[in-house]
Amino acid sequence: MADKILKKEKLGALIESVTGKGGRFVAPTTDAHQVVFKKIKSADEVAGDYILARNSFKEFLFPQTEVVAEFTMGKDSVDMRGVEVHAPQTVVFGARPCEAASLAGMRALFTWDFVDEFYTKREENTVVVTVGCTKGDDACFCTTVNLSPESTEGADVYLREAGDSYTVKVISEKGKKFLEAHAAVFGEGKAKEDALFMPEKIKEVDLAKVSARLKDKGHYDDPVWAKLTRKCIGCGACTFVCPTCRCFDMVDEGTAFEGERRKNWDSCQYDTFTLHASGHNPREHQHQRWRNRFMCKFHFYPEKFSSKGCVGCGRCIRVCPVRLDITEVMVEFSK
């Protein structure tokens, strides 16, 4: 197959081609002074100068809140009705290679003991187009978790900035079909690719050691947890922007007569996350909740699903109001 390129001026045509067929086009755009993933309609909405969007694109596969059933209360019965999964054809454009790598873990969880169609159908209808990073900051640490701006894990199409064009690399079958469906927009040829931003690998981090230390339950009551994370205020903002965090809560909302069952994002950083009806809380203190998040990323996911729990996007570091840096904990646990 000849080398493909996408002229940046053709981005509008690509958006039209996608939306014209009834699909939604999601891309980083500027909203309320920050770059975020949103459904967009035209090329001028697409942010050009960004490191990565503040939120991850997970909300288009796993929305913050969604109705999964409806109910009506009868005199002595409850009428429960399922709802259709809303899974429109979606293109996520301009995701970064790090966050795309989160998809394997997402799928592993949502298909583990129960196939959650609300997730799987949406993911199946989504094409992820990543763009290699030409910019970064001191929160980026993909290279430390064995990813890089050249990684293509989870992506369907991988683009590289190349002056006024992107070079195009098809990664998956879905990506191939995407290119075929919008063939008119893509051109053939070569272009000189811009230099990538490679975050410096944190040399003090040894993932194997982190994993080994977490596997040995001896660390559980290590005072180091409290020492490292006592400043955590439990706001959960890290879990909300994290591309791999996917915990949710089920709530029934409505009146005494009818209502909806909703699946809402939840966060392991809240004390109510593990609070038992008895009043007992197995994770009473914030450092225990933080320990759980860290273990989920560097022990539970790698061990249970052989997938990455952390992709090194650095969102949790950027968004943290007390600047609790996960890499500092990784360094400590590499000792």
Partner: peptide, 9 residues
């Protein structure tokens, strides 16, 4: 996003 960071901080 109902993260309650406003409350926690």
């Amino acid at each position: 996003v109902k993260c309650y960071a406003c409350r926690q901080v």
